[in-house]
Simulated scan of single mutants.
Amino acid sequence: MTDASDGTAATDAAGTVGADTPGSDDTAPAAPPAAPARRRLPLLVAVAVVVVVVDLATKIAIVAALADGQRIPLLLDGTISLVLVRNPGAAFSFATGMTWLLTLVAVAVVVGIARYARRMRSRGWAVALGLVLGGALGNLIDRFFRGPGPLQGHVVDFVSVGWWPVFNAADSAICLGGALLVGLALWGIEIDGSRSGRAAVGAGET
């Protein structure tokens, strides 16, 4: 003959086991929400500020030390040298004679980067856009504040390497940032930090 208390105990034990089961919806802890991707705007601003400071400092030093056209050989029997050139064109002396248009283009670049920066989550994009922004601002300062006047100011270039057109720190930053942007695009890294479909598939097959 079965004792009724044994049945009650078995029922209570079964209920207790069911309540403690990890798969139970009543007791399973809710999954924590995914952390939002970190904004990279401070990094972009920091890179841009460094580029502008370096560009302005080097231009001020060169203008104070050299006369227009004066050359100081540095390395490789003068293949690499310093020479003060007032450039009315774009980077590397391109588009000479279109100073006002180049100024407007630089302003458009700065505005465009500022708009994209709001949705930027990629560290690589932040560095690349910071380089481009800093370079654009560095040369834009010359366009506004150097002679012959606002929107027509000539950019100070001073680094001469062989047959390559004379350039400055801002030009170098723009080229480096542009090359990095191309690399990010080829690698499939989006501005929000995600990977494009093709790149993600390739990474999964590796």
Rank of each mutant, 00 (worst) to 15 (best):
A57P: 03
V166I: 15
P22S: 02
A117F: 00
S5C: 04
M120Q: 12
T11E: 15
A91F: 09
G134P: 05
R143E: 06
T16I: 00
R39W: 07
G7P: 00
G134C: 01
S122P: 09
V127G: 08
G135R: 03
V161S: 01
T79D: 08
R115K: 02
W100N: 07
W187T: 07
R86G: 04
D12T: 14
L101A: 15
P88M: 08
V47A: 04
S160C: 02
A30V: 15
A169E: 09
T96P: 00
A48D: 13
S5M: 10
W163N: 12
V155N: 00
G178Q: 03
D171C: 05
R146Q: 02
G197S: 12
M120I: 06
T96W: 02
R198L: 07
S122T: 08
L66N: 12
G78S: 11
L184M: 07
G202P: 05
V107T: 02
A173Y: 08
A65S: 15
D77Y: 08
W164H: 13
V201N: 12
A200H: 09
G134D: 06
L102M: 14
G134I: 01
L181N: 03
Q152C: 04
D192W: 09
A67L: 11
A170H: 04
F92P: 10
A173M: 09
G135H: 01
V105K: 05
G138Y: 02
P32A: 14
T79I: 12
V49C: 06
H154K: 02
P29S: 11
V63P: 00
L101V: 15
V52I: 14
P42A: 08
L129S: 14
G162A: 06
D3P: 06
T11K: 13
V159N: 05
D3M: 07
V155F: 01
K59W: 00
V161L: 14
G153Y: 01
W125M: 12
P36S: 12
V52F: 09
A128F: 05
A126N: 10
G78M: 13
